[in-house]
């Protein structure tokens, strides 16, 4: 490694080192926001104008499903489906808090019934069926509701002959539903198998963070996989791996850039280029 390469790698690693638990848009400053990465003080308005990307260092703030929809779809074209599907508590699960209490709190925080919003809408005029996950709702975890809504939007896409796009942000399966949530991995993947049979284009957009049960099911079996710049993506969590192998992991481990280097992604996109890129891909598959 030449000295220049070394500096280059070091810069990359520093750039890639992200705070472990950055908060999501509604829960950072109302007027001024401090960048999690470069500590720059930014007026909230300016940050919003830059699609919640730090204009100083390019750090992509995590955003919730509603913001994502506003950014991605042509104005007024998004039509939500299946919004009334809501979670129950089949196992009467209680840890330090009951599952129903956690649902209640998450609902108050996000104004959502569960961790995914599904619907149809237009991207530069191209109509798609889409599932957008919300990390703010119980860490974007996948339980029965997420599994059902993702499956239904794919079934709707088959009916309407629309391409499908999923935008994931998830810590993985929802433990409070145990094996039922595990089965959502199978259910959603079976639905993707149908998309394949029907030759319907299926695109994954992976955002920060996408882990566990979502990475190991519908989240990564698209015909094209796009990751948002700087997103962390993996199967096992960093801590679990560190404990298993008893080694420190490289700072850029599991970043989109790292996975790209290992051939796991088709491309990395800046948030500002996402809409344009998606529309281009959609048009190229229409003939």
């Amino acid at each position: 490694m030449t000295l220049k390469d070394w500096f280059e790698t070091r810069k990359e690693e520093q750039h890639a080192a992200r705070p472990i638990d950055p908060k999501i848009d509604d829960y950072i400053g109302k007027l001024w926001v401090k960048c999690f990465n470069c500590n720059a003080q930014l007026p909230r308005k300016e940050l919003e104008h830059h699609m919640m990307v730090c204009p100083e260092c390019g750090y992509h703030f995590r955003i919730n499903a509603r913001t994502r929809i506003r950014q991605l779809f042509d104005e007024g074209t998004f039509q939500e489906y299946f919004e009334n599907i809501a979670p129950s508590d089949p196992l009467d699960f209680v840890d330090t808090e009951s599952y129903t209490e956690r649902q209640q709190k998450a609902k108050e925080k996000t104004n959502l019934n569960d961790a995914v919003v599904t619907g149809t809408g237009k991207v530069e005029g191209e109509e798609i069926a889409c599932a957008i996950m919300d990390f703010e709702y119980m860490g974007g975890s996948m339980g029965s509701v997420v599994g059902e809504k993702v499956t239904r939007i794919m079934e709707l896409a088959i009916e309407k002959r629309l391409p499908v796009v999923t935008i994931t942000a998830s810590g993985g399966a929802r433990m409070q539903e145990s094996a039922l949530s595990l089965m959502q991995m199978a259910k959603t993947s079976c639905a993707v198998a149908r998309l394949n049979d029907e030759k319907i284009l299926y695109i994954n957009i992976l955002t920060d963070p996408t882990y566990g049960g979502v990475t190991a099911s519908f989240g990564t079996i698209g015909d094209i996989i796009i990751a948002e710049q700087g997103a962390r993506i993996g199967f096992a969590g960093r801590r679990v791996i560190e404990q298993t192998i008893r080694q420190k992991l490289p700072a850029d481990f599991q970043t989109a850039e790292y996975l790209m280097k290992h051939g796991q992604l088709d491309m990395i996109c800046k948030r500002s280029e996402l809409k344009e890129t998606l529309a281009k891909i959609l048009r190229l598959h229409k003939h």
Binding site: I85, S88, E148, T151, M183, A186, C190, A191
Partner: peptide, 10 residues
């Protein structure tokens, strides 16, 4: 078989 799996309210 897998399509039916899951418990939710609607």
């Amino acid at each position: 078989k897998f399509r039916r799996m899951g418990v939710f309210n609607s």
